[in-house]
Each structure stands twice: as C-alpha cells, then as structure tokens.
Design a protein around this nucleic acid. Sequence first.
DNA 1: AAATATTATGTAACCCGTTACATCTAAAGC
DNA 2: GCTTTAGATGTAACGGGTTACATAATATTT
Lengths: 333, 333
Amino acid sequence: MTTIKDVAKLAGVSTATVSRVMNGTGYVNPSTKKKVNSAIKQLDYRPNDVARSLFKGKSKMIALFVPDIMNPFFPELARAVEDVTNHHGYTFILCNTDDEIEKEQTYLNALQQKSVDGIIIVSSTITKELISKIKIPIIALDRIIGANMSSVTVNNREGAREAVRYLKSIGCQRIAHICGPDHVINTAERMKGYLDEVKDEDWFLSSYIVSGEYYFQTATQAMKKLLTVHPEIDGIFVGNDLMGVGVLKGAKELGIRVPDELSVIAFDGIMLGETTTPSLTTMAQPIYEIGARAAEMLLEQINDSKYQSKREEFTVQLIERQSTRKRGESIDR
Amino acid sequence: MTTIKDVAKLAGVSTATVSRVMNGTGYVNPSTKKKVNSAIKQLDYRPNDVARSLFKGKSKMIALFVPDIMNPFFPELARAVEDVTNHHGYTFILCNTDDEIEKEQTYLNALQQKSVDGIIIVSSTITKELISKIKIPIIALDRIIGANMSSVTVNNREGAREAVRYLKSIGCQRIAHICGPDHVINTAERMKGYLDEVKDEDWFLSSYIVSGEYYFQTATQAMKKLLTVHPEIDGIFVGNDLMGVGVLKGAKELGIRVPDELSVIAFDGIMLGETTTPSLTTMAQPIYEIGARAAEMLLEQINDSKYQSKREEFTVQLIERQSTRKRGESIDR
DNA sequence: AAATATTATGTAACCCGTTACATCTAAAGC
DNA sequence: GCTTTAGATGTAACGGGTTACATAATATTT
C-alpha cells in the first residue's frame, strides 16, 4: 500500500504539503501542487480512510437498522437511504435487528466503536434509554422513539381512517380489520384509525379485529377464520400489504370473489401489491421519499452542530387498484 | 470517550498490559488481570475499533455488492450474508451497483480505503481486470466472474432443462421461454438449458424466446404479445420468479386460465411466487444457503493465508405449485 | 549457588493521516 | 529601507490502539 510518505518523497515535499494538496487546505504553491498531484497519479495513491477516521473521529459511514430486510417493505427504504448517503460519500451499513433489543444493543456498541457517523433506526423495541447513552446522531424512521429525537413517519392513523372511509364510500356495510403484531407501534395507530371510523357503527363487533402478525400466511389463516365466522363481512382494512395479499389468497381459497363480494384495502404501497390479480388497493406510503428524507435529516444532523431535532410526517395516498369495488358500481352477490 | 490510557491509569498499569488483558495475549498476572478488568468495567470502556483497524490493516467489515436490493431476489441473499458475518463479529456493508461498472469501481476504491476485509459480489458487469487490482478477498456469488476466483452458484443450465422437461412431462406441446436481459450471465445459461431441450423439437421456433428483462411489467407485456402471436403455446419457462408472476398477470389479462390452458414454471424460488393465485411453480434456488455459504467461504479466505480458490455449485429444486398442471391430469381446453 | 527458563510488565515505535506551530521568503505598506 | 503581512513549507504532536524489545522478578534446572 502506498502511503502519503511515498507521495511526499516522490514529490520532494513533506507529508503536510501532500495533505494540504489533497484536502485543499492552507497555502500551496501552484507548481508544488502540480508536482504533488502528478506524484499521486503516478503512484495511484489513495489515502487510508482508517487513518483519517482515527484522527477525525468520524468514519464517513452511516447505518440503517431494520427488523428484517426480507420483509418487502424495507428494501425500498434501504435503497433510498443508501442512494442518498452514498451520494454524499458515505458508506452504508445494514443491520437486521429482528426487533430484538439485545441485537440492537450489540449493533449500537459495534457501530460506536467504529466511529459510525450516524444511524437511522426502524424499531419497535429500542428504548430512549438505550439510545441516550449513545452520542451518535440518530433518526427514527417509520416509528417514533423518543420525545426529542428526530423522526420521519407517515400519518398512520389518518391514513387508516381514510382507508375505512373509502371502503364505506364504495358501499361496504361490515368492515373488518386485520392488524399487525401488538409490539409494533404502527399496529396501534392504524387500529385507532380503524376504530375512529367504526366504533360507533351499530354493526361493529370487536371480533371484527384479528391479528395477522404482519405475516402473509398468518393473515391468510386469520382471514379465513374471520370470514367463516362472519360471512357478512364485505370489506377488510388490512394493516399492511404483505398481509393484504395474504387476504386475497384466503379469499380465493374460500371462493369469495374480490372485489365483487369482498373489498380489500391494505397499507404500505409496496410493489408486491401490484403483482397479484386482482391487484391490491392500498394506502401507499411514499417509501422511497421517507427513506431519502430520513437520510437527508441525518446528514444535516451530522454536519450541523446546532441542529434542532424535528419530526416530519408524510401523508399516505390512496391507490385504487382492483381489490376494491369501483365507486358507484352495484354490489354483486 | 474513555481510552486505553484511562483504563491503564485507573488500574495502575501500562497500556500494553491493558491491551494484553483485552486480547488475551502474552503473560498477565491473574491479579493484574482482575484489576484491569474491573477498571474496564468501571469505566465502561470499549476499545476504539478504528485505532485497531489502523494498526492491523483489517476492519472487521465485509461488503456485499448487489445490483439492486429492491429486486426481491436479493434481500434473502443479503440477510444470509449479514447473519453469517455478523455472527463472526463483522459489520455488513451493502452496495447497490445497478450493474454499472463506474459504481462498482467507486465502491471498490472506497472499500479498499476503508480496509474492508472482504467482498461478496453479485455482478454481471464487473471484470476480472477491475478486481485483480484489488488485494481484498472476493467471492463471486450467483454468477462466475474470473477463472481463478471463488464462486458460489447454482446449476442454472441443468435447472432450466429440468424445468422444461417438467413442462413436457405434464403434457405441454409448445413451450416458450421468457428470458432475462442479455448482459446477465444467468440469462444465457438458463436459455441454453431451455434450448438443450427444445431446439430439436419440430415445433420449436426462435420466436418462442422473448425477453422480459427481469422486470415484472416487461414480462407481462412480453407474455401478452407472445401469446397473441402464438396462441398455441401451452407452457412457458420463465427466467425468474419476478417475471413469472408478471406472466401470470398477463395470462389473467388475456383470459388464459393457468394452469388449465397454460402452464408456467419460473426460476428462483422467492417468496413472491407463493403469494399469487395460482401460486408459481418454480425451480427454487437455495437462496439463503448460497448466501450463507458465500459468506463462510469469504471468512475462510480472510482467515486462511493459504486459501485455495474454489467453485461451489448448488442444485436447484423443483417446487410444484399451482401454475402448472398436475402430472396425469387431462388437458382442459 | 549459578545458570537458565518462565512469567510479568513497561517503554516506545508503529499504523497513516491531519494540523497546530514554527520558520522562512517575498510582496506590500509606510 | 524597514516593518508588516501574506504565502509556502516543514516539523512534530496527535488520534488510540498493538506489539517488538528490554528489563525485572521468579521459578526451574543442574
């Protein structure tokens, strides 16, 4: 490995001068600069980032915590974060936490020891206490963690309300909800939105809410059980798209026609929902945008010493596809 | 940040002794060890990995290059690599290359400057020349790059043959192929396998091969055009699952019943293929396993100075789902 | 008891950049 | 012509670990 010393020797200057040329700092005579640059080129010299990091205490690396990259919601988020940070010269570290606090703890320690410059966290388990010990800039993504920590989220509750109102608007009379697992904060928010719209309906039953645990298969099972017990259900608001396609599968297996007999609307707007037939109507999050925005906020926080934490909330948007009846179409039973 | 000096001072020893205790190297008196460990605990000291890396020239980080993590084939691969390497104390860096050689070049430089210990590469564009300049251990995954570079792949050609033979065995008379983009090596291999089985059939036409570019929508379009021109086609071998579900979508849109009128088999075995109705019959790669194996091989190569490069090929496995007729069932037209 | 081996610990160089500080030259100001 | 200032460059400390080498204290061998 060629070092700055080799360059200095070849150019006939000190390492300090080479460093100045590379970083564009301090005074350097144009002719000297030329000599140094040609030496750099000649040796194909590239500075050792580790040495730099050691001195600066910064590594030009950022990390993203996700529960599991195999969950189809996260790749797009990861891509967005990587794009933005890579564009600014940062290296992107991915950590699958499985929402286990021990893993999160371990990752936090490791990253801190590596002088990682910032972390974006999607987590339902991590606590403010765990994070408060860390001096690294952190942004909460998709879920709010602490009171004074920056976050980028979507209006889950209002989005859920909108979804349910949409089902009503196309004529659904009995609307059920397949929710996510308890420990995920979104689950509660989306359920609240659902309840906002249905709790005062005379037909509403608490047994209209069942959990699909954010899994495809679990959602299929839950849906089948639900529709067997409550065949009167003609609309389902599903907590996320992955479960949404699970519900579509369940409907097929039960011989229930979607959207003629049952309308299904989900939440997230991942690509998966476009691949099924019928395709899945959904409340789409601007996934790439929120990931990119979180990355930008993190970079701001890294570079601005007087950065003030902030919360940004994006809005979800209805995408009408084929799993819901069209407004005004007659009900076909 | 507490440093090794703080620990040394508190324990009343030199930094060398602290280092010995931490690393379990050299001689240390048990009572001294106890003092040092208690000082470490008392100060909640964690060594600075950057300083370590600088001295050792190793960073305990590995990287994975994928074209695009949003392609549903890669998250599982990434997860496997992260699991294995994380288990061995490595930090996982993810790089989306978009199969652009400039990006790959940039990443390679950046990673080298960061003393990354090893790289796993999925790429159709990268060249041996580009890599040969790098002294970092590298494993090619899913695709072979250079002659003397370790790789983990699957038997694409034989798997493709098997897929086509399966279509024949269930009674398909006219079998088409929707292939991937030219520049991807797998495309050629899988096409060869297809040709091995059909090129001598009297019904075979070169127009039975069309490209879906590994995109969902492109595959849908390609399939619709194909079946419009060649309505006699009753079986399609599709280059990957993502395009496979695109084909299923296209069939629905054309009103072609799958599997009654058309049998579809794809390649990959990603979860997406389970979510559709009908679910997708496929030649499944052991995705997690090949990712994990590549990671293990990389670690071997990192730790074993006399490591010999090797190639390992996994076999794909037929998963019969609903998009193909069952053997022996009558053809229903 | 002397010679040798083993255990224990410290000193300082090293990894490779960055930058504060010192030094020196040449141009500008008076 | 002398002082001041800007421009140019070098020296060396620093960041925080690791380890070769030196030294010292015990333990073992003969």
